[in-house]
Nucleic acid binder design. Structure first.
Lengths: 226, 226
DNA sequence: GTCTATATAGCGATAGAC
DNA sequence: GTCTATCGCTATATAGAC
């Protein structure tokens, strides 16, 4: 990956300090309007010190997204330990990320900047972000862990829910309703629908459809273990 | 929009010439590796002449995407005039864009660069690209024009098909199979499934689901005429 | 390993020529 | 309206100091 993990205490502190200052500036003036120069200035280090820890501004955003992911996992693990209700667990996973990102919607948008560029190390669907994506999908895997589903659905659901979350995150960024309640309602509705479809998927009429969907996705290499 | 429409013949020629040279360079060296300086150099104009016609490199990509859209419409109109088969029309619309972009997959990725930034003029979901998006959806509207569907589905389908196309386009960029046949098969399968679901949507069992989906999307402002 | 000083090259804005 | 010359600012690589 991209990170230059500092190996000393002092380095760790400097890195953290640069990171904090950068986020401050991003929040004050926006991502594009902030320069590495300004970040270094506020952190009281030379510009090249900032580059030593982060290859560029985008790497700082990536670190920010990883922090959000850490926090989501912490929150979800606590909730999953308590509740046995599937719908509540899924809703918690979805809304946790919204809650964490709601003050930083402009920053979050940058995470999607290289979605269309497979080779870019920061492409949110590319090889460079595989680990964080695996963790992000893992949250949903844990959410449905107790459900005893057929094996194919057990593979399909976490990826499907993660895709849903990514799509909703984009809508979230465009949602100008207060507290983004429009997107939150859509998320709730989509989850309800997912659960309904999950039940329907077992009906005889829909059996061929279910098989078709799964084989299509498998062929397109969109499911784990090809 | 972003365009500086030249009003003289000479201006139109210069613009076109800069555009052609830029595309050449993008194809040779990639988008990010190409500078406005180099573009101007190849086009035999001053750098600021390039900036006079295009506010930046991204604007050139936007113009490229508009050219692709023009061509897709031309191709589709010809096909739609001939064939009455719904599935063939939809497949034609999907594959037309793939065919046009297949040599320029790296360039196309840049079109998605500002997807997560609503205010950016080049955000492919933002206000600045509304016209081209309307046209892109319109292709699917024309494809289903002869179908006499219930009014709600008539509104839903074009937007749904356009979303499908956008999603498939991203997979298309990541698809390293020869001729991107993996994505093309997925597209065919997804269309088949869509038509199947369209038929199923009329079954009594699924009536509440259909209503739910439509009201959800309407609430989230994802359908025309709110 | 941590960080600074320095150097090159591109971006994009401006004033103004034609 | 079309285009040029020029300028200040930024990104980022490199050599090397501590």
């Amino acid at each position: 990956m991209f990170k230059t993990e500092p190996s000393t205490d002092k380095g760790e502190q400097t890195r953290r300090h640069i990171f904090d200052c950068a986020l401050e500036l991003f929040r004050e003036n926006g991502f594009d309007a902030t320069t590495m120069q300004e970040i270094a200035l506020r952190a009281d280090v030379a510009k090249s010190a900032a580059y030593y820890y982060f290859p560029g501004k985008e790497a700082i955003i990536q670190a920010y997204y990883e922090a959000v992911q850490d926090e989501q996992e912490r929150v979800c693990r606590r909730i999953f330990a308590g509740s046995g209700n599937l719908k509540a667990r899924l809703a918690a996973a979805m809304h946790a990320k919204f809650d964490l990102a709601k003050e930083d919607r402009k920053l979050l948008g940058v995470v999607f900047r290289y979605t269309g560029e497979p080779e870019h190390p920061l492409s949110c669907l590319g090889a460079g972000t595989e680990e964080i994506r695996r963790r992000s999908i893992g949250v949903f895997r844990e959410a449905i862990a107790g459900e005893r589903l057929p094996k194919d659905l057990d593979q399909l659901l976490p990826v499907a829910l993660w895709s849903l979350q990514m799509g909703l995150l984009i809508l979230f960024l465009y949602d100008r309703s207060e507290g983004q309640r429009r997107t939150r309602r859509l998320a709730d509705g989509a989850l309800e629908l997912t659960l309904k479809l999950l039940a329907l998927a077992k009906l005889p009429v829909l059996k061929p459809v279910r098989t078709k969907v799964l084989s299509l996705l498998r062929e397109a290499d969109l499911l784990p273990e090809g």
